[in-house]
């Protein structure tokens, strides 16, 4: 072999060795790793990396949340990213009293009755034996919530009533329907869903129930001929449709 060949073999061996070394080093390095200066390198295992990713994502979410708050002028409550390129923001809005997630005690206990006395006095027709036992011991009843997949205790409100936490909102709270659907065909326009007639619903329902004196508290004084508007025709049509639907129903069960 000539000297040149020897030098070529020597250099080539070192080049191949360096290439193999770099290949092995690349294969052993985790995908999310990036170059860090020697002084910044920290030895982390898989669990530490998972925690680090979580912390970093929370910091990014917080940064975006603050930016959204500044941009929109409304306090942004929460930020959730299902994928890194998709961000969902939730702004503050008045929460109903018993909205989902509001599981804290509402209001202070009413004066004159302790919590134990309140639960002992609570009527219990819906509860099973286990909850009846809890009530007898002065403890709130418990039920399983399939939405949250957790057990939850009943709450005592400031108005001295018992409610379950995470109770949905009643959008028709404060309205009353004079008759029950399946006992009377005399449905009124006020009984049919129409937001424009909300203000008239109770008024018409009371005025049109002459057979039930307990409902006609003002003797029908609130109703006058001027109150009969053109909506009566529409109300009759809607009434007719609802009555027809009820009559065409098959027997349940």
């Amino acid at each position: 072999m000539t000297d040149l060949e020897l030098i070529a073999i020597f250099a080539g061996s070192w080049i191949v060795a360096a290439a193999v070394w770099m290949l092995l080093d690349w294969a052993a390095r985790p995908k999310h790793a990036r170059f860090r200066a020697k002084g910044d390198r920290v030895q982390r295992g898989p669990l530490e990396y998972r925690h680090y990713r979580k912390v970093r994502r929370a910091e990014e979410n917080e940064e975006i949340r603050l930016r959204l708050t500044e941009r929109t002028g409304k306090p942004t409550l929460a930020l959730r990213s299902k994928r890194r390129e998709r961000v969902l923001a939730r702004h503050d809005r008045p929460a109903p009293e018993y909205a989902i997630g509001n599981s804290e005690r509402i209001g202070a206990a009413a004066a004159g009755k302790t919590d134990e006395e309140f639960w002992i006095d609570l009527r219990d027709s819906s509860f099973d034996d286990a909850n009846k036992q809890r009530l007898a011991e002065g403890n709130p009843p418990v039920r399983y919530n399939p939405i949250t997949d957790q057990d939850e205790e009943m709450l005592r409100t400031e108005a001295d009533t018992a409610v379950w936490p995470n109770s949905p909102v009643d959008p028709f709270a404060g309205t009353e329907i004079a008759t029950s659907d399946n006992t009377s065909d005399d449905l009124d326009a006020g009984d049919i869903d129409d937001a424009t007639h909300d203000d008239d619903a109770d008024h018409e329902a009371v005025g049109d129930e002459p057979d039930d004196p307990t409902l006609d508290t003002d003797g029908g004084a609130g109703e006058s001929p001027a109150d009969e508007t053109d909506d009566d025709d529409e109300g009759d049509q809607v009434t007719e449709r609802v009555v027809r639907d009820l009559k065409s129903l098959p027997e349940a069960g």
Binding site: P96, A99, I100, N166, S167, P168, V169, D170, P171, F172, A173, G174, T175, E176, I177, S180, D181, L187, D191, I192, D193, A195, D198, V242
Partner: peptide, 22 residues
């Protein structure tokens, strides 16, 4: 959204809500 109220959870009571609700 129903009756001008928007919420993630709503409860329709038969003694209050109309027979037909959107």
């Amino acid at each position: 959204v129903v009756n001008g109220i928007s919420a993630s959870a709503i409860a329709l009571h038969t003694d209050r809500a109309p027979a037909e609700v959107d």
